Amino acid sequence: MGLIHIDLFTTLDGVAQAPGGPEEDPKGGFEFGGWQAPLFDDVVGEQIDSGMEGMDALLLGRRTYDIFASYWPHQDGGIAQLFNHIPKYVASRQSLNPEWEGTSQLGPDVVASLRELRNKHENIHVIGSLDFVQTLFAERLFDQLNLWVYPILLGRGKKVFAGGVVPSNLRLIEPVVASPKGAVMQRYALVEGTPGVGDMSAGE
């Protein structure tokens, strides 16, 4: 069965809204669209490239899909070649008339649709798509969470964990690496069970 990877860029206080550009998602009057750009460096670029090895499908929310579909089909080489070649799946409540070749819309039953995708693909990546990601968190419909945490605080904006998560255990699957500009990459696997509790004073 294939794996669903969630790839997100977030600030230290958990804001993941519109990292790529000012017009990406100004909802709620968000004023910091494009906050990732000044902090992007070659190390992060290499981490992203290596993390996409083996990717054979993209799974996106509607807003992120529209942004990607307006940009990547007009690019060549590298990530563009990969994105343009592999199947794209879109989670949207509204009807979709896709112009990006290889695009399909998920059915209304997200759980059933994702089960089908896992049977068809080995490594499905969800990039951005913050609203859709809340559904994946709430339903535990992911296998790996890849976070790039940046050393800034924004306060306002859509958060990675916006209240839709359920108590879950994660396992760090590779050493944490910081880039020269301070972005910290963390890769986690979802594991079974719920967080345990204890009493720190028990040993006193």
Rank of each mutant, 00 (worst) to 15 (best):
M1W: 10
G2M: 11
L3D: 14
H5G: 02
I6K: 03
L12M: 13
D13R: 08
D13S: 07
G14H: 06
A16Q: 08
A16S: 10
A18W: 02
A18P: 01
P22Y: 12
D25S: 09
P26T: 01
A37L: 15
D41A: 03
D42T: 08
D42Q: 12
V43R: 11
V43P: 00
G45R: 03
G45C: 03
E46A: 14
Q47I: 04
G51C: 05
A57K: 04
R63Y: 01
T64E: 05
T64M: 11
F68H: 08
F68L: 10
A69C: 05
S70F: 00
H74T: 14
G77N: 05
A80V: 06
Q81R: 15
H85Q: 15
I86Y: 10
K88Q: 05
Y89H: 15
Y89F: 15
V90K: 03
V90P: 05
A91T: 00
S92K: 06
L96V: 05
P98I: 12
E99F: 11
E99R: 15
T103K: 13
G107K: 11
P108K: 13
V111S: 15
A112K: 13
S113K: 07
R118F: 02
N119I: 04
K120G: 02
N123S: 15
V126Y: 06
I127T: 11
F137M: 04
E139M: 13
R140Y: 05
R140K: 15
L141C: 05
D143L: 08
D143I: 09
Q144T: 10
W148V: 07
V149R: 00
P151M: 03
L153F: 14
K159T: 11
V160S: 02
F161D: 05
A162M: 04
G163S: 09
G163W: 08
V165P: 01
V166W: 06
P167Y: 12
P167E: 09
R171E: 14
R171M: 11
L172M: 07
V176Q: 10
A178W: 01
A178L: 08
S179E: 12
S179Q: 12
G182M: 11
A183Y: 00
M185D: 01
M185K: 14
R187Y: 02
Y188V: 03
T194Q: 14
P195E: 06
G196N: 06
G198M: 04
M200H: 13
S201G: 05
